[in-house]
Simulated assay, not measured.
Amino acid sequence: MIRVLATGTFDLLHPGHIFFLTSARAMGDELYVLVARDSMIRHKAKPIVPEIQRLEMISSLKAVDKAMLGSEKDIFEPLYEIDPDIIVLGHDQFFDVEELENSLRERGFKAIVTRIDESLKCPLYSSGKIINKILERYCENND
């Protein structure tokens, strides 16, 4: 049985998330998803949707076998429980594949890391695009 792990913030759930998770699920027999903790997000703005609600949304998706919150101390901590065979990164995730694989080996993990370079091509395929559309519609025209 091949266990796949995907991670992300998953703020403002959108079609790009579904594409990413469905693509990740197709790589194995079961898909585990780690939802980033609010306290651990440092590379972008804090999410709008609270972490528990983001977890509930991801848990409800058909492609996801198990979703859980990430650690508030060490991003590698949940991997000891999950023990993934494959870790899938999205096209816009900031991790360097080689560096991540080296960090995994140092901790005794044998998982391979792969990146889904494709992204969904639709008008609102990212949280940022959704936010910008909301701002455009409701803020910029209100003089």
Rank of each mutant, 00 (worst) to 15 (best):
L124K: 14
E51M: 13
K73D: 06
D96Y: 14
L104R: 13
L124F: 10
K73C: 04
V113L: 07
S103W: 11
I87H: 01
E99C: 08
E136H: 09
K129F: 12
L69Q: 05
I86A: 03
I82Y: 11
Y138G: 10
R105I: 15
A6Y: 04
G90L: 02
I130E: 04
D65L: 13
D85H: 08
G8I: 00
L100Q: 07
R37M: 07
D11R: 00
S126R: 10
S60H: 02
R3V: 12
F76S: 11
I131E: 03
R25N: 03
I134T: 01
K133S: 05
D65H: 06
E140Q: 15
S71Y: 09
E106K: 10
V35Y: 04
K121Y: 04
A6M: 01
I87Q: 02
L55F: 03
K129C: 12
N132L: 08
L79A: 12
K62D: 15
S103R: 13
K62R: 07
S103G: 06
S103L: 04
I131W: 01
F19T: 04
G128T: 15
G28I: 00
K121P: 10
E51K: 09
P50M: 14
S39Q: 06
D65T: 11
D143C: 13
V33Y: 09
K66G: 04
K133A: 06
S59D: 06
L120A: 14
A63M: 05
F76Y: 05
T7A: 11
H14D: 01
E140G: 14
R37A: 06
R137I: 07
E106T: 15
E136T: 06
L13A: 09
I131H: 06
L135F: 13
F76Q: 11
L124G: 11
L12Y: 00
